[in-house]
Nucleic acid binder design. Structure first.
Lengths: 230, 230
DNA sequence: ATGTTTATAATTGATATGCAATCTTGTCGT
DNA sequence: ACGACAAGATTGCATATCAATTATAAACAT
């Protein structure tokens, strides 16, 4: 694949997920080309990639912007996540090896530690990571990719809300979910997943406007110096 | 969006779905640029779009080819379809208006007619169409788009197999599914969906090699003259 | 004749530049 | 204050070019 445009789209993705590039931010082709020292053609390829991921919206003759999802889209994204994870849960339930359950529990512990240390960014990342880990265990790369894309979009959503999450409640859900799955209680596990996502999306009572405007040039500056800052 | 590259990727998508462009076919940038009378840059954008849809595979410094899914991928795709449709079924069950059920039943009838008239291509299309209609009723455009993408990939899969389908059996499944959903029997509906897709994928006992090589130039010729041939 | 190496051609990845169409902006006049 | 208009910026696309890589063909040795 187009190595360079791939790298660039990954960098921009990171910037968006880490809330450095906020929804609505203009992504001018020439500006990005200058920043990354590439031609406009490469930038365009990266932007197309991003727009198909839903992170960027391209308007004809107007340019590309970091997507600004509506509340409805937020609900749809979480419904889609619910459907995928319910399906994975049904496949996994009772059928996973010991190492699998252990990895999931380890994940919960890590997030617990992050919360104790008040490392919000890390807790956030681990929160999504739990769901990704769960889906990875289905060993279905098609489902996995769709799910990863949805998770990226939820990161975008979190840029739009001020809501403080009840991490403890959500974390308890994760813990309980593992128990239910290990015991083979599929229906209850699925219901828990639905409630879990519903809780999250309900926490998104939106501050639709008045989000600070970001400038692509300065937001991306940290990524340009050393491009391997995970 | 890039109007031109969009049109081109749609045309190529149609050509692939209609089995005019077969898996493995080389999609040379210059050739496509000549065919559609556009620059290579536009072709590249279209190819990137297609590769993210899974219909085209790009190999670095080698070029783009119509994807040649493995059997494993086929299973993953149908598992993903199962998960999505089971989720939609759960949401829809008992909760859809009369017009909705009517539209689904009409779909089944149309396909019945197509089979009677031995119009295989149409029956094929309507077969996928039923699933798409079902998902559309969820009114979740995120799920809808993911599902549509999977359906496109199943069309690719059908290029790889000789299997003759038992259309009657599959059609009966569709009919029965409507009944189950209307009666609110979620679990049974979900099981039927799983079995249905399993039946299909098991029909894919592959003729991995020896598929006739197609040439992009002649395969796409019909689409160039009049670009609105649905 | 077969297999290996080498040289040539073709293709991709990327850049630079130019241009028309469109959008944004800022000014001006009312 | 408001709308019309002109100047400037940006996008979308085309063409031309170049290095790097890969594919193909020819020359060579076995």
């Amino acid at each position: 694949m187009g190595s360079r445009s791939d790298e660039i789209s990954k960098i921009i993705t990171r910037a968006i997920i880490q809330k450095r590039l906020l929804p609505g931010c203009k992504l001018s082709e020439q500006t990005l080309a200058d920043i990354f020292k590439v031609s406009r053609a490469v930038v365009r390829q990266a932007l197309i990639h991003l727009s198909e991921d839903g992170l960027v919206t391209m308007e004809r003759n107007r340019g590309a912007f970091v997507s600004k999802p509506t509340y409805r889209e937020a609900v749809e994204i979480y419904d889609a996540l619910t459907i995928l994870e319910q399906g994975v849960a049904a496949q996994l339930s009772g059928r996973l090896d010991t190492r699998g359950w252990a990895e999931l529990r380890r994940h919960v512990e890590l997030q617990n530690k992050a919360i104790d240390e008040k490392n919000d960014a890390l807790a956030d990342q681990l929160g999504s990571g739990f769901h990704e880990t769960l889906v990875r265990m289905s060993r279905n790369s098609v489902v996995q990719q769709m799910h990863a894309q949805l998770i990226r979009r939820t990161a975008l959503l979190r840029s739009l809300v001020s809501s403080r999450f009840d991490y403890c409640g959500l974390l308890h859900d994760h813990s309980q979910l593992i128990d239910l799955l290990e015991e083979g209680k599929i229906a209850e596990a699925q219901e828990l997943i639905a409630v879990h996502h519903n809780t999250v999306v309900r926490g998104y009572l939106l501050e639709d406007d008045t989000l600070p405007k970001t400038d692509a040039r300065e937001a991306l500056a940290p990524y340009v110096a050393q491009e391997n800052t995970d």
